[in-house]
Design a protein around this nucleic acid. Structure first.
Lengths: 216, 216
DNA sequence: GTGCATGGATGCACGACGTGCACGTTGGCC
DNA sequence: GGCCAACGTGCACGTCGTGCATCCATGCAC
């Protein structure tokens, strides 16, 4: 009965596709429930029900509900590193980084909207902060490697790591301030504003971070 | 019978002192057990026993065993901010920060040794990483405020936050690389080496972090 | 010193979490 | 069709974290 119309799928078989689908369903269920009810008021059992799998199955994919919610954030961070790698090699590190950030935030795919939701969620839920920082820290490794490739340094050099860490730090601060305006003002901040703010932060890093003391 | 020789203690009464003592006992018990048996193999109940209090009492002071272990790290971070504030106002931000870090690491008080133990512990126990990053993030606020005071900027300016975050990021990278040498070599790395490494990181931040692409 | 109010320590109970284990089912492959 | 590996599921168990009621030490007023 038409078996094998898509012999093994475009990626690697039905099994793989089902796994991916289950993981995505859990990730989205977690995000949806967390946005609707607040992270604290969501149980893992509820997430599993929403994704129509058993409680036990949830733990085959994520180790906690925070992990599931932040999987969306992790996707965004991975996308950022990928875009950074795709920037023209002639661009300087910080310029490529600035453009990569804006590409991700301006992208209209579903992941972009979900990513924004997670960022807002983290601001409202301090219990997510530790794991989010951990997600960023994990991507720092990937970014450091990408930076090392770009400038032609060995991966164990100090510069790539320092640059990657500082870059994510700047991104975190900028996003935090940008999102704070969302809370204050009614309308969502524009990507143009984000471009300006993150551009300033990057310029500050590029120009040298030090300043004299005593208000000079 | 000699009541009131130390009328209310030097700080604020017996109650206050007992609370502080219990908190310190729990903090140290958690650290000691974690170092000896590994963080994963320590239960909250064991920590409470070691500190000679009830299990329930533990949760009156800390919300998790990670919290208790990292309380030591938090002390170190607070000390760092305090030393930064105490540096001569004429020093630039990054110079004061470099000296403050070295002061903390070179201080011979007990807290210094405990702090080192925690740092080593975190490297070996990924489960502590999220909360450690959270501890640092919490101190970023205090450091940002101190930086704002030093350079004479309002606390809601972007520079103090960016600088504080980047500074902690640099500190984290440097300490990580410094501690990695401890694992490789047999002997513990010297503070002189730390001074050199963190000095380099700070110089890099001060000189401007950007670099051209294409290996130029 | 005596009684009283307050705040911390403790025990208890309960829901949630996270994991090891065994079993059934399904997909992949000959 | 038949075998095998991988996945989903239920079960049990230890741990976690918290609300609540209770007991006791402390500090205070007199």
């Amino acid at each position: 009965m038409m078996a094998g119309v898509v012999p093994t799928g475009t990626d690697g078989g039905r099994r793989e596709r089902k796994k991916l689908a289950t993981r995505a369903a859990l990730r989205r269920a977690a995000l949806r429930l967390a946005v609707r009810n607040g992270v604290e008021n969501v149980t893992v059992e509820r997430i599993a029900d929403e994704a129509d799998v058993a409680l036990r199955t949830f733990f085959n994919y994520f180790s906690s509900k925070e992990d599931a919610v932040l999987a969306t954030a992790a996707l965004g961070a991975e996308a950022l590193v990928a875009r950074f790698r795709a920037r023209p090699p002639a661009e300087s590190v910080l310029a490529a980084l600035r453009e990569a950030v804006l590409e991700v935030m301006e992208s209209d795919d579903v992941a972009g909207h979900e990513h924004l939701a997670v960022l807002r969620l983290i601001r409202a839920a301090p219990s997510l902060l530790p794991q989010q920082l951990c997600v960023l820290a994990a991507q720092e490794d990937a970014l450091a490697e990408a930076i090392a490739d770009r400038v032609g340094l060995p991966v164990d050099d100090a510069y790539p790591r320092l640059c990657a860490t500082a870059a994510f730090a700047a991104l975190r601060v900028t996003l935090d301030r940008w999102l704070a305006r969302t809370a204050d003002d009614g309308d969502p901040p524009t990507t143009a504003l984000l471009r300006a703010e993150f551009g300033d932060a990057v310029d500050t890093l590029a120009a040298g971070l030090d300043r004299g003391g005593a208000g000079s």
